[in-house]
Nucleic acid binder design. Structure first.
Lengths: 214, 214
DNA sequence: CTCCCATTGTTGACAGCGTCATCATTGTTG
DNA sequence: CAACAATGATGACGCTGTCAACAATGGGAG
C-alpha cells in the first residue's frame, strides 16, 4: 500500500502508468470544463499524462468511447446529487421539489459542458445500454417525487408521466437556458437562484391540484 | 438526386462557381441534418461541390465562421416561423400561445441538429453581435406575446421577464427533451403534439391569473 | 474598349488529429 | 520460472483545418 502510494506520487516515468484510465477521464473532464469539447484530443491527453499517443486506445477503443465514459460518470454524479438532495429535507412536496430542483440547476451550472456532452451522447441512437440505464436513474427519481406529491394530495391527479413531463421540461429548460446564456439580459442578474424561485413557483402553480385553467 | 442537383448547379464547371457561399451553407445544413455535426468537414463540402479544398476559405475565414453563418440562418428562419405562426390566429392568449409553441416545437423537431448548433454557438462568449441580435428576435416576440396576454388579463401580473421566464423554460425544455429522446419511454408514443398539449395546459395553468400556489 | 485590380478559385505545404498494425515491457498466474 | 494477458511504445496512414503563393475571372476607371 505504502509502496503503491509512493509510486503513484513519483513523477518518474514508469512503463506502466498505474491507473491511466482514471487519469485520462480526470484530465479529459478538466479540459472539457476549461476549454470546451472541441479542445478534447486523445493525443493531447496522452501528452499531458506523459504517455504515448496510442496508449489511450488500451482503455477506450476510440474517442467516442472516452466521451461515453465521461457522460456515464456525469450521469452517475447527477443521480447521486439528486439523491443526496433529498436527505434531511422536510415532508412537504414543495420543499422536496425545491431541493431537487436546486440540486439539478447547481449541477448544470457547475458542469455545463459535461451536461451538454451527456445529452448529446444520449441523443446518439447507438448509446450503450448501461449509459441509458444510469441516465434514467435520475429521471426515475424525479418521477418518484411527483408520485409522492400526488399521494400527499399536493400534486394534481393524472398519469404520473403526464404530470411529470411539464415539470421536467420547465426544470431542464431553465437549467439549459441559464447555463447557455440564452436568457434575455437582466433576468439573471441576481444569479441562478433568483430565476430558480420564479420557475419553482411556476412549477408548483402548474402542478397543484385544482381546476384547469380557463 | 444529389448528383442531379449538383449538375443543375454546375452545368459546366466554370472557374467561378456563381454562388459558392450559398451552396456551401445549403450542403452543410444537409450534411448536418443527415450525419450530424461531427461529420461536417470543409474539405468534404468543397469536394461535394466540385471545388478545391481551400475555396471555402474565400467565404468563411474558418470553420467556425461557417457554423456561425449556419446558426444565424437558423435563427432567422426560427424568427420567421414564430412570426408566421401568429397570422390568422384568434385573439385569445391561449390560442396565440398554442400557435407559437407548436411552431417552436415543430421547428425543433425538423431541425434538431441545427438547433443544437444554434445554442452552442450562442454559448460561445465571442459570438458575433449580429448573431445575438437575430437570436433575440424570437425571444422578443415571445415576450411580446406574454405582455399581450397580460393586457388582456389572461396572464398574471408581474414583471414580464419574470412571467416569461418559466414559460420559455417549459417550452424550450420540452422541445429539447423531446427532440433528444430524453423522455421516459411511452410519453411520446402519440407524437410530439400529444406531449405538447400537456405542456401547454401546464403553462397556461402556471401563468394564469389567480392566487399563488400554497 | 482596354487595362487594372479586387474577387474568387487552385495548388501545394504544414502540423495535428484518430486509428491501426506491430513490437516491447510488465505483472500475474499456473 | 515460464507462459501469458495486459499495458505501453513506435511508426504509418489518410484525414482534417489553415496558410501562402499563384492563376483565372470579370467589373469598373480611364
Amino acid at each position: 500500500m505504502v509502496d503503491t502510494l509512493a509510486r503513484m506520487q513519483t513523477p518518474a516515468r514508469r512503463y506502466h502508468h498505474g491507473d491511466l484510465r482514471a487519469a485520462l477521464l480526470a484530465r479529459a473532464e478538466e479540459t472539457l470544463r476549461e476549454r470546451g469539447p472541441a479542445a478534447l484530443s486523445l493525443r493531447e491527453l496522452a501528452r499531458d499524462l506523459g504517455v504515448s499517443h496510442a496508449a489511450p486506445s488500451r482503455h477506450f477503443k476510440d474517442k467516442q468511447a472516452l466521451l461515453d465514459a465521461l457522460a456515464l460518470d456525469g450521469f452517475e454524479r447527477l443521480a447521486a446529487t439528486a439523491e443526496a438532495s433529498q436527505k434531511g429535507v422536510g415532508d412537504p412536496f414543495a420543499e422536496r421539489l425545491r431541493a431537487l430542483v436546486r440540486a439539478y440547476v447547481r449541477f448544470a451550472a457547475d458542469n455545463a459542458e459535461l451536461l451538454d456532452l451527456m445529452y448529446s451522447v444520449k441523443h446518439d441512437p447507438e448509446a450503450s445500454q448501461g449509459l441509458l440505464a444510469v441516465a434514467f436513474r435520475w429521471s426515475d427519481h424525479a418521477v418518484a417525487l411527483i408520485e409522492y406529491g400526488q399521494r400527499r394530495g399536493e400534486v394534481r391527479e393524472g398519469p404520473v408521466t403526464e404530470v411529470a413531463l411539464p415539470v421536467f421540461a420547465a426544470l431542464h429548460g431553465y437549467a439549459d437556458l441559464a447555463v447557455s446564456g440564452m436568457l434575455p439580459p437582466g433576468v439573471l442578474d441576481g444569479g441562478l437562484d433568483e430565476g430558480l424561485d420564479v420557475v419553482l413557483a411556476f412549477i408548483l402553480r402548474g402542478s397543484a391540484p385544482g381546476p384547469a385553467a380557463p
